[in-house]
Every structure is written in structure tokens, then in C-alpha cells.
Computed example of a mutant assay.
Amino acid sequence: MAGTMHVPRTRGVLSGVLLVLLGLWGGLLPFVGPYADFGFAPDDPWVYDTDRLQLSIAPAIAVGLGGLIVLISANRAFAMFGAWIAVLGGAWFAVGGLVATLWDVEGVGAPLGTSEGRQLAEQLAGFTGLGVVAVFLAALALGRFAVVGVKEARLNEFGEEKAEEAPPGQTDDTKKTQPIVRSSYGRYGRDSMNPPPPPLRESETAPEDQRVAGERGAGKR
């Protein structure tokens, strides 16, 4: 069982890197967005309050930390734990603004855009769309780490040394399922079980047939 817990570090590289980048984006957007006039009020960078802590910084840490664990972990259980952290962080990005109103959290601020399209883009980039993408990537990582590959199964059953000696493309299951060579004593080889008797020697041959009286040439030699 211990062998199946080990996974290649490259399995979660793509998902892990993207999750780390999404966490950085979500955590920094409310603070550095005003530099590009893209973000949330007030129109000043690096403004901190508890609302931004709850709705932006906390889920950003969860997504980034989960992505980092997925990126560097070679243990299946630990990597899946990191992916679940990223799932929770992404879900909080998507719905945290609505849920937090239960304890009177006003939000990170109004979007800075003046048009409806610009405001929609800011909401998607900072919260809803960001959270959906983070959940998707984390779920993708969960699926990849939940599958036990052929290499891990081979290492678990026979050890690393035998796995390296096995030729590429041939698993131990294929070795066990090689067709059995039929011997000549199978269903269609019954004659080989009762071989014909050896030919008689000249001295043991049957005597010459005698002619019956009345037949043509009877009595003649």
C-alpha cells in the first residue's frame, strides 16, 4: 500500500503552477488593481481592511498554498489534501461575498469601471470567475492524483528494482497472461498419446495367403 502513495512530482506541476498564479492574482488584485484603474474602490493602492482579509486574502492564501502543495508533493494523500484546500479557497472566491453578508461584511469595494462590461470583468476577474477556474484546476488535480498509474502499481507489487528491469510497454500482468503453449497431448493430439506400433520385421511378417480350392490358379505355386 505504501508504494501506491508515492507519485511522480511532475503529475501536479501544471495544476499547481496555475493555482499558485491564481492565488497571487486574487490576493493582489484589490491592492494593486488601482494602478491600472482595474479593481475595486477606493481608488488607492494597498488599502487594507478586514473585509479584504476575509474575501480576498484568506481565499488567495488557500488557493496558493494548495497549489504549492500540489506542485511539490510526491505523496498522493498530501497532494490531494492540498488540492482540497485549493477547492475550498476557490469556492470562497466564488460565493464568499454572498455568504459573508450574514455577518455584515460589506465587501471589498465597488468596481472601479464606469461601464457595465468593465464592472462585470472586474467582478469575474476578482471573485466569481477566479473562483470557478480555481475549483476546476483543483478538481483536475484531485482526479489525477486519485488514479493509480501502471508504474506505481508495479512499484508497489514488485519493488523499484524489478520495475526498472521490466521492458517498456510490458507489465507484470501481461507476463501472467501469456498464452499457454499446447503440447502434442492436447485435445487434437490424441494420436500422439497412442502412437502406432512399430513396423514388423521381415521375419515376423504374416505368411503368404493360401489360395482357396476352386479359384483360378489354385494349387499352383
Rank of each mutant, 00 (worst) to 15 (best):
M5D: 13
S15V: 02
V20S: 02
W25A: 00
L28R: 07
L29E: 03
P34H: 01
F40V: 00
V47R: 09
Y48Q: 05
D49P: 01
D51G: 05
L53K: 06
S56Y: 03
S56E: 02
P59L: 00
G64Y: 01
L65N: 05
G66M: 06
N75A: 10
R76P: 04
F78E: 02
F81T: 06
G90I: 03
G90L: 07
L98A: 14
L98R: 13
L102E: 11
W103S: 11
E106W: 13
G107S: 09
V108T: 14
V108K: 11
G113K: 15
Q119M: 15
A121C: 12
G126P: 12
F136Q: 09
A141T: 06
A146C: 03
A146R: 11
V150P: 08
A153T: 02
E157A: 15
E160H: 06
E161Y: 11
K162C: 08
A166L: 11
Q170V: 12
T171F: 00
D173M: 10
K175N: 06
K175T: 04
K176C: 00
T177R: 14
P179M: 01
I180N: 03
I180S: 03
R182P: 06
Y185E: 10
D191K: 15
P196D: 08
L200R: 13
E204S: 06
T205Y: 13
A206I: 11
E208G: 14
Q210A: 15
G219W: 13
